Simulated scan of single mutants.
Amino acid sequence: MEIERKYLIHELPKDLEAFPSRKIEQAYLCIAPVVRIRRQDNDYYLTYKGKGMMMREEYNLPLTREAYEHLRTKADGIILSKTRYLLPLPKGLTIELDVFNAPYEGLWLAEVEFSTEEEANSFVPPQWFGEDVTFSTAYHNSVLSRGKK
């Protein structure tokens, strides 16, 4: 079970490059249910996501580079690319800050994953976070892959 909150970011932290980051490319084979492939640096995954907003089932399976490249040719819509920065928060939490490349250059989204629904509901975001878009499908990557932000 994935439990996460998602926020728009309007101004990036000034020291962003000091944090660990990953280069991500992802594409969608289906959006109902969500079936995604992802290259994260040199690792490859097939992901299934169930229905839901703040809480939903998520299963990740490893792929080979060859399988990823084969499935990539079958992707629907836009293949998304972004850099994900990992910023620590108190209580062992991590901000996953996604800085998107074209065609969504200038879109910055922060996600924070939690162990419990109670923890997610009581989360107080840092002041530099913008609007909470946890319950907006407009900012699901599967929707962005369709060009519908």
Rank of each mutant, 00 (worst) to 15 (best):
I3A: 07
E4P: 08
Y7C: 02
H10P: 02
L12T: 03
L12W: 14
K14E: 15
L16W: 13
E17H: 04
F19K: 00
R22D: 00
R22S: 08
K23R: 12
K23V: 10
E25K: 08
Q26G: 03
A27T: 05
Y28W: 11
L29T: 05
L29S: 06
L29W: 14
I31V: 10
A32P: 01
V34G: 00
R38F: 14
R38L: 08
R39G: 03
Q40D: 05
Q40T: 07
D41I: 06
D41T: 02
D43N: 08
D43C: 06
Y45K: 00
K49N: 05
G52I: 01
M55Q: 11
R56V: 10
Y59E: 08
L61M: 14
L61E: 09
R65S: 12
E66S: 03
A67Q: 12
A67S: 05
Y68V: 05
L71T: 01
T73Q: 13
K74L: 15
K74W: 13
K74V: 04
K74R: 13
A75C: 13
D76Y: 13
I79Y: 11
T83N: 06
Y85W: 11
L86F: 13
L86G: 00
P88S: 07
P88M: 11
P90H: 08
P90N: 05
G92D: 09
T94W: 14
T94E: 12
V99D: 08
N101H: 13
A102M: 11
A102H: 14
P103M: 09
E105F: 09
L109S: 03
E111R: 03
E113S: 04
F114M: 06
S115V: 06
E117T: 06
E118P: 01
E118R: 06
A120Y: 14
S122V: 06
P125Q: 05
P126M: 13
F129H: 04
F135L: 07
F135I: 02
F135V: 00
S136Y: 15
T137P: 12
T137W: 15
A138M: 13
Y139W: 15
H140E: 14
H140A: 12
H140R: 15
S142R: 09
V143H: 11
